[in-house]
């Protein structure tokens, strides 16, 4: 099975080192301080969980890390480089990919097309040659379609390859976002509430796949989830946020039982 997605390189070296971190990130919306000097660190090849009640700033942090928002203060460091002001698509080229809390598929494209758009370096995406010199991209395209089908099979969507994304269920759309991220060849994937709105069976299925990706492919994950306990057993490390600040971090069990964390949930 594992070799079918073989284009993702096996990078055992450097597992456990920090691949991404934030330094005192501050983000304000008018009067609201959505992020107040946030510091988090992601270890390479590990699954890091970020929990916190609604409105605690989790999505804002994802937006800052992925480049959809620029922080007022602080830095985002990825693979040793300051990426705080890099546009999202350039971060993606470095291997940093995110998914959205509310799935954002290309509605009128098929499932296969949605995944194919994520292929990196397609020569057929040069619009000045695409229609005239088809020989320049046909071979690449065929290889990528094979890869896309294997990924779709792996996330369990291959039977839907020909359906428009607008015909998928909420859970299937989450899987499609994951398929796109894998197609991108990302080695760092940030998922904003991948389990929200999915039935529990599918949630465990999804997390089994995430664990497999991190163990077999050494992909680094930051996973956002605001329901304590649901996904705890899958993760290596946890952070808890409340009102724009990190209030606890450490082993998942420790964080879940931290009185400050429990209080933040009761208060919210």
């Amino acid at each position: 099975m594992s070799e079918s997605i073989g284009t993702l390189r096996l990078q055992r070296k450097g597992d456990g080192e920090y691949v991404l971190w934030t330094e005192n990130v501050v983000k304000r919306f008018g009067g609201i301080i959505a992020l107040n000097k946030v510091n988090i660190k992601l270890r390479k090849g590990k699954i890091t969980l970020l929990i916190g009640p609604n409105g605690s700033g989790k999505t804002t942090l994802v937006n800052v890390i992925s480049g959809f928002l620029t922080p007022e203060e602080g830095k985002v460091i990825y693979k040793g480089k300051d990426i705080t002001r890099l546009p999202p698509h350039d971060r993606v080229k470095m291997g940093l990919v995110r998914t959205f809390q509310i799935p954002k598929p290309f509605q009128n494209l098929t499932v296969l097309e949605n995944v194919m758009v994520a292929a990196e370096g397609n020569p057929g995406e040069n619009p000045y040659i695409a229609a005239i010199f088809r020989g320049k991209w046909k071979k690449f395209e065929r290889e990528q379609v094979e890869k896309a089908f294997n990924i779709l099979k792996w996330v369990g969507l291959v039977h839907k390859w020909d359906s428009k994304a607008s015909d998928l269920s909420g859970g299937q759309l989450k899987l499609l976002e994951i398929a796109r991220a894998i197609m991108k060849g990302a080695d760092t994937i940030i998922m904003d509430e991948p389990a929200a709105g999915i039935n529990p069976v599918l949630v465990h299925d999804l997390f089994d796949r995430i664990v497999k990706l991190s163990r077999e492919r050494h992909v680094t994950f930051l996973i956002i989830e605001h329901r304590i306990g649901l996904v705890g057993k899958y993760v290596d490390y946890a952070y808890a946020m409340n009102m724009g600040e990190v209030i606890s971090e450490g082993e998942p069990e420790k964080v879940f039982n931290d009185p400050k964390v429990l209080e933040s949930y009761l208060g919210g």
């Binding site: 698509h89 990919v97 959205f100 954002k104 290309f106 494209l109 758009v117 995406e125 796109r180 991108k184």
Partner: peptide, 20 residues
């Protein structure tokens, strides 16, 4: 692939950025 890319950008600019 260019036609597909144009249509993807039309459908969702954020997602297009998010896939690079």
């Amino acid at each position: 692939p260019s036609g597909r890319l144009f249509r993807a950008v039309r459908d969702d600019e954020d997602s297009a950025e998010a896939v690079g």
